[in-house]
Write a protein that binds this DNA or RNA. Structure first.
Length: 436
RNA sequence: GCGGAUGUAGCUCAGUUGGCAGAGCACCUGGUUGUGGCCCAGGGGGUCGGGAGUUCAAACCUCCUCAUUCGCCCCA
């Protein structure tokens, strides 16, 4: 029989990584909830058309990276490569604009892109998404950015850089694109990398984003979109920046910041880390005012962002910000097989009182069991064998002090209650059984 | 889609010019001990990722393949 393994780029998440994901989700609910965002859960599978129409038919994501297949009736379905499109579909389909002028959603879950896996990039990866629909004001952009930065701060992350730019709108972007093409076309193609020579015709704005030093040097004096946007776009961007400055949110204007998905316009932003490898983009987003209409809905503006949870987890793990796993209160060592039932029932009583811990089921030597108890870092080791069973007692050993006492089985609930209260008060004092 | 690296015990990894398959940690047994941590002695464990080739002889050399990983690309 051949060994089974996971699909390339798909992973099983055990603790502590899974714990980090829970932590991020809990923090997201708390922070985003505080801004009036409600959780929206959307399907993982959608009709392919949804993504090709929103993300852009010419993008790499749509052309090369989607998990697309036909269902049993021959309809083309796609595992979502990102969340925004599905949220737009849900918004339109449920007539959300009729119920409230502004709708704010957050959502998280797995996304799928057929890419070559590497650090911070999986084929099944997880994103945390926020979308604000119905507000065209620059204050909405600023609030979204402030919320994202606050969320990252609440996760305990530092060393992140916020980059912002404006991409112009349908009115002014074509003119800029032309100006840029003209500039790039005048360059000696030999001085650009192979990829950029291709981009000249496919997506000239991406040339600005190239990391090859030669290309960077060549585009040093390229026309900047900031200088080519229309009056409305400029005022909008200035208003966003004004709030960031008032709040003293550190940020850098990056004229080269362009987004890979077609639907973005005006404000665009990205949060990058330099400490987690080549895939340093931790979060990215921007405004997408035409998208809802483009998908057949009303003309409703929108702005949002997505966070890469695997990338956040890399940073959390690295800094060990992770909060941790609670140490158990007890470990029950079973000295004789005949005492196992009693031990199990005692453990159940302890847990119902609020304590946590495990029972040893195996008939191993006491030495081995004590080693287990020690390894589990339980506060107390309870021991029960034939002798204890006979006089209805249990031996309770304080693992820290080494003290041990024999208490009646019948009063184990009382003992647990005292212990549980003790733990509560320790938690209140901040010296609880939580390690950092 | 393109490039580099890696794959040997449960884990982390050594393994010289091709010559008996190794260490540390973990696990188990015994000793010591204030019934656990430290220490001592012993033990179980391996398709050397898989397949083919070269050779008297391959973990080591060649080819193929699978997997992992880091980059490019792309993106969060």
């Amino acid at each position: 029989m051949s060994k089974l393994h996971t699909i390339k780029g798909f992973a099983d998440l055990f603790s502590p990584e899974s714990t980090l994901f829970t932590f991020m989700e809990d923090t997201a609910r708390r922070v985003f909830g505080g801004y009036g965002y409600s959780e929206l859960r959307i399907p993982i599978l959608e009709y392919t058309e949804l993504f090709s129409r929103s993300i852009g038919a010419e993008t790499d994501v749509v052309q090369k990276e989607m998990y697309t297949f036909a269902d049993r009736k021959g309809r083309s379905l796609t595992m979502r490569p990102e969340a925004t499109a599905g949220i737009m579909r849900a918004y339109i389909e449920n007539n959300c604009q009729a119920r409230e002028s502004v709708s704010k959603f957050f959502s998280f879950g797995p996304m799928f892109r057929y890419e070559r896996p590497q650090k911070g990039r999986m084929r099944q990866f997880h994103q945390l998404d926020c979308e604000c629909l119905g507000a065209h004001e620059p204050q909405a952009d600023a609030e979204v950015i402030l919320m994202l930065m606050f969320f990252l701060q609440e996760l305990g992350l530092t060393g992140l850089a916020l980059e912002v730019n404006t991409l112009g709108c349908r009115e002014c972007r074509p003119a800029y694109r032309e100006a840029l093409s003209a500039f790039l076309g005048a360059l000696d193609p030999e001085t650009l990398c192979e990829d950029c020579r291709r981009r000249l015709s496919t997506n000239p704005m991406r040339v600005l984003d190239c990391k090859v030093p030669g290309c960077k040097a060549q585009t040093e004096n390229a026309p900047r979109i900031r200088d080519h946007v229309c009056k409305d776009c400029d005022e909008h961007f200035v208003a966003v920046l004004r709030i960031l400055e008032q709040r003293q949110v550190p940020h850098v204007l990056n004229p080269r910041l362009v987004r890979g998905l077609d639907y973005y316009m005006r404000t665009t932003f990205e949060v990058v880390s330099t400490s987690i490898g080549a895939q340093g983009s931790v979060a990215g987003g921007g405004r997408y005012d035409g998208l809802v209409q483009q998908l057949g809905g009303p003309d409703v503006p929108g702005i949002g962002f997505a966070c890469g949870m695997e990338r956040l987890a890399l940073m959390l793990g690295e800094k060990q910000t992770a909060h941790a796993l609670q140490k158990p209160d007890f470990y029950i060592a079973v000295l004789d097989a005949g005492a196992t039932d009693t031990a199990l029932l005692a453990a159940q009583t302890l847990r119902e009182t609020g304590l946590s811990g495990e029972v040893s089921f195996s008939e191993r030597s006491l030495k081995s069991q004590m080693r287990q108890a020690s390894k589990s870092e339980a506060a107390y080791c309870l021991m029960i064998g034939e002798a204890e069973l006979a006089d209805r007692t249990v031996v309770v050993k304080n693992m820290e002090s080494g003290e041990q006492v024999s208490i009646p089985l019948a009063s184990i609930g009382d003992w647990a209650e005292i212990r549980a209260e003790d733990r509560q008060s320790r938690l209140r004092k901040g010296a609880g059984p939580v390690n950092g």
